[in-house]
Amino acid sequence: MTRVIACGEIDMSTAGQLHEGVLGVLRRQRPSRIEVDLAGVTFLDAAGIGALVMSRAAAARVGCRLTVVNPRPMGYRLLQVVGLLEAFGLATLPPPS
């Protein structure tokens, strides 16, 4: 398992960096699982969600499972609203407080 740690704001200007980071891990390490740690993410918008979705799809194409861990309440709620909790392995967890 490989952990990608994201921090700061993930928006239109930074979402590409997250996606490229995951692609780099997939190319270099070929892990069977990637956890994207969102504990340090202070803002997440639609572009950030898009980067996570594209990263998850890229991982799936090479047989890797991508999950999200430690989202702040705002990130958790956003993933909940767009219906992606289960896709990112969060559906069985209680919401963060």
Rank of each mutant, 00 (worst) to 15 (best):
M1L: 05
M1F: 03
M1S: 07
R3E: 13
I5K: 04
A6D: 10
A6T: 10
A6R: 04
G8S: 13
E9S: 15
E9K: 14
I10C: 02
D11T: 08
M12Q: 15
S13F: 15
T14S: 14
E20T: 12
G21R: 06
G21L: 04
V22M: 01
L23W: 02
V25E: 03
L26D: 05
R28E: 08
R28K: 10
Q29E: 14
Q29T: 13
R30S: 13
S32I: 05
S32R: 12
R33E: 10
R33C: 04
E35G: 05
E35A: 10
E35M: 04
V36F: 02
D37V: 05
D37Q: 05
A39K: 09
V41H: 02
V41Y: 01
T42Q: 10
T42P: 06
F43H: 13
F43Q: 08
L44I: 14
A46V: 11
I49P: 02
I49Y: 06
G50M: 02
G50T: 02
A51G: 04
L52H: 01
L52P: 00
V53N: 06
V53M: 10
V53T: 09
A57Q: 10
A57S: 07
A57H: 05
A58N: 06
A59Q: 01
A59T: 03
R61A: 14
R61Y: 07
R61L: 12
C64A: 06
C64M: 06
C64E: 01
R65S: 10
V69L: 07
V69F: 04
V69C: 09
R72F: 08
R72E: 14
P73C: 14
Y76G: 00
Y76K: 00
Y76S: 03
Y76H: 08
L78M: 11
Q80Y: 09
Q80P: 03
V81W: 00
V81E: 02
V82T: 15
V82I: 14
G83F: 10
G83W: 10
L84T: 12
L85H: 09
L85C: 13
E86Y: 05
E86G: 13
F88T: 00
L90F: 01
L90G: 00
T92L: 14
T92N: 15
T92P: 05
L93M: 09
P94V: 05
P94I: 06
P96M: 04
P96S: 07
